[in-house]
Amino acid sequence: MFILGACPPGPWPTDDAQVAEALAFAESDPGLQAWLVETRSFDAAMAGRLRSIEPPADLLDSILAGRRATPAPVPRRRWTTRTVLALAATIALVIAVPAAWISFSQKTDAAALRKDAATFLSEKWEHDFDYPESSFPKIQEWAAQQSFHARLDAPAALAKSRTYGCKVFKWRGHTATLVCFVPEGQSQVVHIISVDRSALPTDGTASPDQRQLAKAGEWNTASWHQGARSYVALTQLTPETLSRILAVKSL
């Protein structure tokens, strides 16, 4: 009943074994069959009514006008003449400046990780996972077996929560991991990005008991280090809720 009621109006999905099994069961139960027919009929009628709502007449023109007034975005990963020239100029500059300046300019810290993590989640990540998995212990096991040998930890309240999976990406030359948690009782995801602590040589990131809360773009964040890794948690939950989730002690 639960799974069939979650199938949208229209043809039944043909590639879902759970649905096929539930349909077979429904066929043998007249009461369930009647419920299904009535619910599907309601759903089809409701969908038709809602889809009859039309957007305002001027909305399309307004969006298209806004599109034409929008500054051209900078394409990523495209090697234009301008990009090549800019890169050459940058290389020349880096070679020419003193070593001390180089050290300063390449400083990486929790603030940089926080900022880049927010940009990654909002603009670059395509909601894909290298290891889709709902159990954090399995993600830990998987990450430890990869070539980057990450030993991942999570705050106690999250470690037992359901996950969506793990994404691996590069941050300033270092391997970074993203794990997405769904805290119990919450409707929003908590994303935790981590890098090896050696990636933040100039960092003063706090220990797990002194997590630093900060706003980064549309995200509420907290950063800390634990063991050999540095972490930043990003969510659209309130800072109070995030703080409460992260502060829960181990049982």
């Binding site: 957007p55 909305l59 969006i63 806004g66 599109r67 929008t70 900078v74 990523r76 603009e123 395509e126």
Partner: peptide
């Protein structure tokens, strides 16, 4: 709706 398209158009082809 407009804000959503604005974010897409200024995302630099991230998708």
């Amino acid at each position: 709706t407009q804000e959503t398209f604005y974010r897409y158009l200024t995302s630099g082809g991230a998708i």
